[in-house]
């Protein structure tokens, strides 16, 4: 063995190590995701092209795009799609703006801050089933106080249950969802806020910048990556989130709160038509992919523009 030979070899080894290192860090995540999520998802997607009805187990088999053709003439599908849009955008808007507000409020020293932090984050820890039931109680005029308060405030003509009114019912699960989701944005944004170097603020303070200027010029840019990722993920989650709706209104009255995921749930586990349910799930997947692609494109354009 002479050094001339080993030298490039070990150099190669180092190169290989360099090349492999990121994959090494990634491998546990990738393996578990591939086994537990990707494989079942592929199986789930394959249902969309098959006839899988538990009610008619003998009609199985591949049927191509039949489900997708049915889908385009299904009026419930389109109303569910519109409802999903309302549900997602309204929930997201309030969760985000109220969550950011809370993070800013908490990013300041005051007596009892620890206690307040622990308490305002509690809604996130309540199982959605329980929070759905609790909010349904609160909206029920027999056993809940909200309709009475809303009537006193002039928001309702008489104390009735907004969950029974097709024009208002969607706001019930939305309020519950906002309540549940504020802590998410508050925690992530607060953690990000606390990694803003304080000398930046000090410098701004010396320059005599107004607090709005500080917010726009320093805080926001620092938060931007976190905002981008949390808003994107949260949109996907909310769009896919059916628990509160199923518990509080089960899509009613008259389908007025039926979103795509709740319709998918009903189709799969009430009609036992897994094929059609999967076709709708695939449509939802495609729409969400489009949304993320657009968002990522915008993000990279923005960061290129900087």
């Amino acid at each position: 063995m002479n050094t001339l030979v080993t030298q490039p070899k070990s150099q190669k080894k180092i190169d290989l190590q360099r090349f492999l290192e990121p994959y090494l860090y990634l491998s546990p995540a990738l393996i578990i995701i591939a086994l537990v999520i990707i494989t079942p998802t592929l199986v789930g997607i394959s249902y969309a092209f098959q006839s899988i009805e538990l009610l008619n187990p003998f009609n199985g088999g591949w049927i191509g795009l039949t489900h997708f053709k049915t889908l385009f003439s299904d009026r419930y599908f389109f109303s569910a799609l519109a409802n999903t849009l309302d549900w997602t955008l309204i929930s997201l808007f309030f969760q985000f703006s109220l969550g950011l507000g809370l993070a800013l409020l908490l990013n300041r020293k005051f007596a009892g801050r620890k206690l307040v932090q622990a308490l305002v984050f509690l809604p996130w820890a309540v199982p959605t089933f329980l929070s759905g039931l609790t909010w349904a109680w609160l909206f029920n005029p027999i056993i809940g106080i909200l309709p009475h308060w809303m009537t006193s405030l002039g928001m309702l003509p008489e104390p009735y249950n907004i969950l029974s009114d097709p024009h208002l019912a969607m706001y019930g699960p939305i309020v519950a969802n906002v309540w549940f989701g504020i802590p998410f944005f508050a925690i992530t944004l607060l953690a990000a806020l606390q990694s803003v170097p304080s000398d930046l603020y000090e410098a701004a303070g010396i320059d005599g910048a107004s607090s709005w200027q500080v917010f726009v010029k320093i805080t926001l840019p620092f938060l931007a990556p976190m905002i981008a990722i949390t808003v994107m993920l949260r949109t996907i989650w909310i769009a896919n989130f059916a628990d509160l709706i199923i518990v509080m209104t089960s899509g009613g009255p008259a389908n007025s709160t039926q979103t795509l995921p709740s319709y998918i749930f009903t189709t799969a586990y009430r009609r036992l038509d897994f094929g059609y349910a999967s076709a709708m799930a695939v449509m939802l997947l495609i729409l969400l992919l489009l949304y993320t692609a657009i968002l990522l494109k915008m993000r990279s354009k923005l960061s290129n523009g900087d």
Partner: peptide, 13 residues
Amino acid sequence: LLLVTQMFPLVMV
């Protein structure tokens, strides 16, 4: 891929 895992409704998997 990581993003896609969040997009398919759980009831279907």
